[in-house]
Design a protein around this nucleic acid. Structure first.
Lengths: 347, 347
DNA sequence: GTTAGCACTCAACATGGGAGAGTGCTAACA
DNA sequence: TGTTAGCACTCTCCCATGTTGAGTGCTAAC
């Protein structure tokens, strides 16, 4: 299973060249471009070995070789050297992160945009704290004779709002009262734990004001049934159109269809939440059959030591892993920092 | 400029057939499929006339004819009969609109989704009241030692939030005080008019609490600098991939690039806000040179008699205008209704 | 173990007829 | 005078065929 130095060099050359050109790589090309000090014939022999071991494949007899998923895996695990960001890019990132941040969603969206701009791949940003976290504030606002808006703020910086129907007898002042009671009772509780324990207590509290009692329960239930779980931001979806492997509209269509299934993306990325550092899923390692010619490079970010979500880059299996790893790692750190600053926590 | 009945029928046949098949239409096809009671030769003569008048064109000598932009325009203005929705579709729409609506953004997103599902075209939904309307409520929430969240609710159902830096000396209770003052002073004012007039007044009010005076001004400015103007929702962007005219990746890329320029879309649609009913922009009538093989069918919706935004369908010039007109008209009405109900106004 | 030489394979591209769809024109017909 | 049949003509599309060039595997010599 281990490869001698020359085989490694040949494999490395094939992968680098294929990543750069998207064309099958022949023995001559390698001998010319990557001075390994041996002739094409020798390289051919090595290539035959590598093919037998499953690291590379041949699309057809008279073509060069392309890396197999296994080849990429070996590359990522053993051969790859991290790329470095150019000065321009560092400066660009610095500027982006210095401009004032105003809310969590904005940070995540921007992260997605930067990721995709830096790599020309599709960025996926997942938060799993959306609608979770501790309750910070609730506010009922009178909107019309039968409508009120419920606004809930969590300590993770999430703001959820919805409009609910209320009986016409409820006046703005009543909403203030209810808001006050809810705030007092729910203060600092975690959203998940709120549901059952406190509802009764609130019920009794509000019992004093009999005319709003009828709707109090409903309202509480509604206002706490905040959309929970993950939320996904995509960036640079159209970048896949730049990849020669997606010049065929049918492929694009299926991939875009898959990207719309947020649930599936969430699963792929949740998978990687426990892993330390940057991880790659290559080709057939992806859960989904239809994504077998895509790869993802992912990492999870955290605030105050608690993992909060993950970010990733989606590209063809032929993607530039070295660069993707660097960019994802860099952005993970930045994102963690910004989020901590934004939410006023220092870890 | 006016066409006799037979020419109209021929033009109608060509357009209907081309919309259905995306293939140039020949004289034989028309004679066979659309029993006009004359032979192909006669139809050929009519077609030669129509071509000379600029209503149809010939891609090359031995091909059939395709409608020109001018032909489509004539069709839309004089020949088109509105399509009708199928029972299934009516039922589907009814169900969608009956499920509980929770906020304005959700309604607009859903409208976009329905529009695109019903037609397989790309839906564009524009609101121009985003960040406008009357001030309803402001709430400052303490997030960390140096962070607070500002939440602003407008009567158009918009909720805007952002996190701001505050001096460490500000305590949660202070934020409550400020919130109360702001609410009292700003109540019912239109967001656009608030900026200058009231700031001084609030300044004096808060002067009583000297230690928060420093930041009060900044905070007010920040919290009112709500992102203003239009907001755009797109639905079914990838539907364009189903159109044979976009089977070429380059075209898709340029079009998607254009769709990202929200400003431009906003302009196209703002154009149509004053017009009564459903309007079409066909091919070269589109502002943008690069969209000359696309058309849009648009209409604006209103709440309480006041136009609030517009919805539209974007497709190839070969789009099914009859159906697009019907769907857009239907959805405009529905959307206006739902928004009125949601915002508690009856017009 | 390495390399040169060579026969072999196969995709990609160009070339060259048909086949088919559709036209415009002309002349005959009602 | 308007309509139609007939026919020559045009042009795309498709398929079969040939050519080129890149790349391989094998063998024999170094």
């Amino acid at each position: 299973m281990t490869l001698d130095a020359r085989k490694q060099n040949v494999l490395l050359a094939i992968i680098q060249d294929y990543i750069a050109t998207a064309e099958p790589v022949g023995s001559r090309t390698i001998a010319r471009k990557y001075k390994l000090g041996v002739s094409p014939a020798t390289i051919r022999n090595e290539m035959a070995d590598l093919e037998e071991m499953g690291y590379i494949e041949q699309p057809h007899t008279s073509a060069g070789r392309i890396p197999s998923d296994r080849g990429y895996r070996y590359y990522v695990d053993h051969l790859m050297k991290r790329a470095e960001l150019s000065l321009d890019e560092e400066r660009m990132l610095f500027n982006s992160y210095m401009t004032k941040v105003q809310d969590v969603g904005q940070v995540l969206r921007r992260t997605g945009r930067l990721l995709s701009q830096l790599t020309r791949y599709t960025a996926v940003v997942l938060t799993n704290h959306y609608g979770k976290g501790k309750f910070k504030h609730i506010q009922l606002v009178h909107m019309g004779p039968q409508q009120a808006m419920v606004v809930v703020v969590t300590d993770a910086g999430g703001v959820h709002h919805r409009i609910i129907d209320i009986p016409e007898s409820i006046k703005p002042a009543d909403l203030e009262t209810i808001s006050a009671v809810l705030n007092q009772k729910l203060q600092g509780k975690s959203i998940e734990n709120i549901r059952l324990t406190l509802v009764k207590e609130i019920y009794f509290e509000l019992a004093k004001q009999k005319h709003i009692l009828n709707m109090a329960m409903d309202l509480i239930r509604e206002s706490l049934a905040v959309q929970t779980g993950e939320k996904i931001f995509l960036g640079g979806v159209f970048n896949i159109l730049n990849q020669p492997e997606f010049h065929n509209v049918e492929k694009v269509k299926t991939l875009l269809g898959l990207l719309e299934q947020e649930q599936m993306l969430a699963e792929i990325m949740a998978d990687v939440m426990d892993a330390e550092g940057v991880t790659a899923r290559i080709g057939e390692e992806m859960v989904n059959e239809q994504m077998k010619d895509c790869s993802m490079v992912m990492s999870s970010y955290s605030v105050g030591g608690k993992p909060m979500g993950s970010i990733g880059l989606l590209g063809p299996t032929r993607m530039d892993y070295a660069r993707a790893f660097t960019v994802v790692e860099y952005m993970t750190k930045n994102l963690s920092l910004v989020m901590e600053r934004l939410l006023g926590r220092r870890s």
